[in-house]
């Protein structure tokens, strides 16, 4: 049953990817990318990668959509027709893909119960048995109750710090671009009209 969900999600993912490729309206592409993020996050949850799933939604569906929209606002909503022929990029993609597939033959067989991935740290992480101290039994035995928080903020703390730094830097970059483009607009629309009582609280 779980594999059915896997395949359904993967199928939807593939359709979304093709949609992203075929569409020429960039705003529509950004929206589809949001769907893509949600789908891959759901897929990560099925695969038990809760930390990646969390990051994917926060970064992929949350921040990247806004960043991409900001970029689209600067560059226009139509994708230009490409002028070069697609042969060379296709060749590069095929070669890289072929190398990656070749590389997978060196990986342990998928789904074997005694693979390193199943025996190394994950069961202990999930069981929440490992204390934070280097040696078991030391005084710093913090049992963080939540799996996601444990993996994301404790076991992978530095990794998460790096990720958030990258996203923050990207956001600051796009905001800087915005500041540069703040000249009188052609339409001259007022930036805000707050006649509504509720707004988006």
């Amino acid at each position: 049953m779980e594999s059915t969900v896997d395949f359904a999600l993967l199928g939807l993912l593939a359709i979304t990817a093709f949609g992203v490729l075929r569409m020429r309206n960039l705003v529509a592409v950004v929206m589809l990318m949001g769907i893509y993020s949600f789908l891959s996050a759901a897929l990560f949850v099925v695969l038990d990668a809760v930390d990646v799933a969390f990051t994917e939604v926060a970064v992929g569906a949350g921040v990247s959509t806004i960043l991409a929209l900001g970029t689209v606002a600067l560059v226009g909503t139509r994708q230009k027709r490409r002028k070069h022929s697609p042969v060379l990029p296709l060749f590069i993609v095929l070669v890289t893909g072929g190398m990656l597939v070749y590389g997978t033959y060196d990986l342990p067989r998928w789904g074997e119960p005694d693979n390193p991935v199943h025996r190394h740290v994950a069961p202990e992480y999930l069981a929440d048995q490992v204390p934070l101290a280097a040696e078991p039994g030391e005084a710093l035995a913090v049992h963080i109750p939540n799996i996601v928080t444990t993996v994301l903020a404790s076991y992978r703390g530095y990794d998460t710090l790096g990720e958030t730094t990258v996203v923050f830097a990207a956001m600051v970059g796009v905001l800087t671009l915005f500041v540069g483009s703040r000249r009188p607009r052609r339409g001259g629309r007022p930036p805000a009209d707050d006649e509504d009582g509720d707004g988006a609280s």
Binding site: V72, A73, V75, G76, T77, R78, R185, R186
Partner: peptide, 13 residues
């Protein structure tokens, strides 16, 4: 939606 409504979509497009 805020983005669409409050017109920070710039002058292009």
């Amino acid at each position: 939606l805020k983005f669409f409504q409050f017109g920070s979509l710039g002058a292009s497009g």
